[in-house]
Computed example of a mutant assay.
Amino acid sequence: MSDTGSSRLVLLRFLERVQERDLSRTRRWIADEERRQTERRVGEARRPLAPAWLIERGPDRNNIVALHTGQCWDPGKRTKPVTMAQAIGALRQQVPACTKCRPDPALGIVN
């Protein structure tokens, strides 16, 4: 059985349609990824700055458990941001400094 030019042309046209569909799909994937990256950059730019100092409270919310830096890896669940003046005041009132992030030397207070 011999291959005619028209059947070969039909196969080539089919291949072209398949490749155009694949290229179209790939371009959609690229556009989606570019959109996600743009959204990620915008989200990072809009993210509020991490607080410099954190006060950790106990379960009853009246008891202060520790003072942390804003970059502490183990601040506990009940923290709230405080100013540098509040952090220094807390250390002067004998609030324990976190033993992991050591905020007291960062504040210039050495025990």
Rank of each mutant, 00 (worst) to 15 (best):
S2M: 01
T4F: 06
G5L: 14
S6K: 07
L12F: 10
L12D: 12
R13T: 13
R13C: 09
F14T: 11
R17L: 15
E20C: 07
R21A: 15
R21T: 13
R21L: 12
S24I: 00
R28S: 11
W29N: 09
A31C: 10
E33A: 13
E33W: 13
R35E: 09
R35N: 06
R36A: 04
Q37C: 11
E39H: 08
R40P: 05
G43V: 06
E44D: 11
A45M: 10
R46P: 09
R47T: 09
P48Y: 01
L49Q: 03
L49N: 06
R57D: 06
P59K: 13
N62Y: 08
N62A: 13
N63F: 14
N63H: 15
I64Q: 06
V65G: 07
A66V: 07
A66E: 00
H68L: 00
H68V: 01
H68I: 07
H68M: 04
H68Q: 05
G70H: 02
Q71V: 09
Q71E: 11
C72H: 05
G76S: 08
R78C: 08
R78P: 01
T79N: 06
K80H: 08
M84P: 03
M84R: 14
Q86N: 04
A87S: 03
I88S: 00
A90M: 00
Q94D: 12
Q94A: 09
Q94N: 11
Q94H: 10
V95C: 01
V95Q: 00
P96L: 08
T99A: 03
T99K: 01
C101E: 07
C101N: 01
R102H: 14
D104C: 01
A106G: 02
A106C: 05
A106I: 08
I109C: 06
I109N: 06
V110G: 04
